[in-house]
């Protein structure tokens, strides 16, 4: 459990990051952010990058601020930054609620929001948040900057549309209207484990009926995504236990469940049914 040899580079600016990436990515170079996913797999020698571009000393990347109608989250912002609401209103509360489900305290003090997106674990809570809230991602390279919709960013299990020389500099989460209701629920065998299925829902109540429903499911498919079938069940209806059951049913039917040695497709659907309903129930509490 000692990593294979590597060279560490310590850029100070974003320009230096992207030029280091341009130089070393072709030589098996990678970004090192919080290291909470990368370092363990290096210790197992399942990853053996020859170069690590350590962004932990890059100025400005710890920026966490509202810019217009979105919240900007720089590449050095740690999970732990969200322990207390970072802004007033539902988005700050939502992030604070979700973050407590990510791993354990020491890991949250190092792991980064953007690192979670770049790592793209299907069960990552931040991927689920990004997918449910339609995040936009600021991607930089020596070839230029681009802004990517989360749906175009998350491609599959541990896979994104980032090119090897590209750096995820910032994630942008749209602010939520003040009357937004949200609910999150995840199921795992132990507290702090990656979710076996998780649901995040947001919606507004207009004249007693649900509008703008967003239902995101993580941990059940190869990537987190919104489930329109469940949203359609909700939109235009008054919240009720029966409605939430129906939305859970719709989500369970809509997904293409991941199967593995421990988890059958049937059980994964059971879980999606459960977490969706429970997330919706939490939204009313």
């Amino acid at each position: 459990m000692k990593p294979a040899p590597f060279t560490r580079h310590v850029p100070r600016t974003v320009d230096e990051v992207v030029s280091a990436l341009a130089e070393f990515a072709p030589l098996d170079g990678r970004i090192l952010a919080g290291g909470q996913s990368l370092v363990p797999i290096m210790a197992f020698r399942m990853a053996r990058p020859a170069h690590l571009i350590d962004i932990n000393e890059v100025e400005g990347l710890d920026r966490l601020a509202v810019d217009g109608d979105y919240l900007s989250i720089g590449a050095r912002v740690r999970h732990g930054a969200f322990h207390k609401p970072v802004i007033d209103g539902p988005l700050g509360k939502l992030l604070a609620f979700v973050v407590s489900h990510i791993a354990h305290y020491p890991i949250r003090m190092r792991g980064t929001f953007c690192g979670s997106l770049a790592h793209a674990d299907p069960a990552s809570e931040w991927c689920l948040v990004a997918a449910t809230l339609d995040a936009q991602l600021v991607v930089k390279s020596v070839r230029g900057d681009r802004i990517v919709d989360v749906t175009d960013f998350l491609e599959g299990i541990m896979s994104t549309s980032l090119a090897e020389d590209e750096f995820l500099a910032e994630a942008r989460l749209p602010l939520l209207p003040d009357d937004t209701k949200f609910g999150f629920y995840e199921f795992s065998r132990r507290a702090g484990d990656f979710a076996m299925s998780a649901a995040l829902v947001t919606y507004r109540l207009v004249d007693g009926v649900i509008t703008d429903a967003c239902v995101g499911i993580g941990g059940a498919e190869d990537r987190a995504r919104r489930i329109p079938e469940a949203e359609n069940v909700l939109n235009g209806q008054a919240p009720s236990p029966e409605l939430f059951v129906a939305a859970g049913e719709a989500a369970a039917t809509a997904i293409e469940p991941l199967e593995d040695a421990q988890t059958t497709a049937e059980y994964r659907r059971d879980l999606v049914r459960a977490v969706t309903r429970r997330a919706l129930e939490r939204s009313t509490q």
Binding site: F187, Y267, D270, L271, R273, A274, V275, R277, R278
Partner: peptide
Amino acid sequence: AFVSLARDTGG
């Protein structure tokens, strides 16, 4: 032992 089970997740 005293346990509770979740009907929907089997938890």
